[in-house]
Design a protein around this nucleic acid. Structure first.
Lengths: 214, 214
DNA sequence: CCTACCGATCGGTAGG
DNA sequence: CCTACCGATCGGTAGG
């Protein structure tokens, strides 16, 4: 875990290349050359290709936790807490899209031990979101059948973001997170005071099934 | 596009291996050996490694379209249409998890021309969901600031599914889709008849910010 | 469908 | 940090 300038450049270059071409689709030579280093010279700075992947993933896991954990531990109301957690998550993704992409998709190419470490941290991270949902359900702030699905919906939106978000787009990360939070908290259907649902289907005709489309 | 039994086995084996190890992390030898074929013998059945990737991606694109397109063209009310579209999408993902995983993540390793073809189809597919949202907004069945984010939320949930869904899990694909649809349509917060929102933040204290947590 | 082989390229190292 | 090199493995082919 050298903090040398060259090592940082290598980690950054590796993240960009791993994100674009995949871990196995990237050559150590390409990483070296992208920061004007000769072929095998990157071994003067790092132990091996997998070390670069590990550094990227380990840092990303830490940053997600560091961003969301204080939100989860705060005392704001559940709805605003979930909103803030999503905003924090989206912020980390958007702050380093290549690193987030690698963290989401290439971590499984780590060796078994490191893979297990990442998996542990990822599970603990997801638990933060489930706990926010659980708190909201307990206080009556959320209506949901379980903790897992709402948490999964938030994380799905937050993770898939890495596939489409571009920093030069029209919306900044906070705005994107806000839009998703509005949808997930408020729902797409205009509020009909919580109609009882039966297995995911509205019990009885909720509103007239008018059809104005071609 | 041979339909021989051996070719089908190769496509299936390739999907499984590409999904687990990635396109570049998989060897043509591994694919061949997984269906009891010798090293280079798979070239008696296919033109090259990339052809396998192409077949997987092209079929997946077609199946997603075939499943959702009739739903989008139907005349059911927007909320049920969006629910049915998500159910159809989830069904395709769950029916062949390896193929869906490869379609979502490995298509970018196709050559430029084939890559462009997949991108076109994917864009057209996403437009189906945006159109459902547009229809709902037009008829007043949906409240949303635009078409893109609700569509993106549905697709995020449906695509991220390939990362965690396991066929031996407690919920079948229809149940999973139903849970997500309930959340997206109904929202997590109990229905306070549509309070005007300002930039993703509820205007004024919507409900008492009681805090019952530690 | 197999055997045997091809040139190219891979991650990594020695020696300076 | 470079040059020159290592064995191993890659996708693909020839000839049968």
């Amino acid at each position: 875990m050298d903090t040398g300038r060259r090592v940082e450049q290598l980690v950054g270059a590796a993240a960009r290349l791993f994100a674009r071409c995949g871990y196995h689709g990237t050559t150590v030579r390409e990483i070296a050359r992208s920061i004007d280093l000769q072929g095998g010279s990157l071994y003067a700075h790092i132990g091996g290709k997998e070390d670069l992947l590990w550094t990227i993933c380990e840092r990303a896991a830490r940053q997600f936790h560091a961003a969301v954990s204080p939100v989860a531990d705060s005392t704001v109301a559940p709805a605003e807490k979930l909103r803030a957690a999503l905003r924090a998550h989206v912020g980390v993704v958007a702050a380093d899209l290549p690193a987030a992409t690698v963290y989401f998709h290439e971590w499984r190419f780590l060796g078994p031990d490191r893979q297990a470490l990442i998996r542990e941290r990822r599970d603990a991270y997801e638990a933060l979101f489930r706990r926010i949902v659980a708190e909201g359900r307990r206080t009556g702030a959320f209506r949901a059948e379980d903790d897992a699905f709402p948490a999964l919906l938030v994380l799905s939106a937050g993770n898939w973001l890495a596939q489409w978000f571009r920093p030069d787009g029209p919306l900044d990360p906070d705005a994107v997170a806000g839009r998703f939070a509005d949808l997930i908290l408020g729902g797409l259907s205009p509020a009909v005071p919580s109609a009882p649902t039966t297995n995911g289907r509205v019990a009885g005709p909720a509103r007239p099934a008018v059809e104005v489309t071609a």
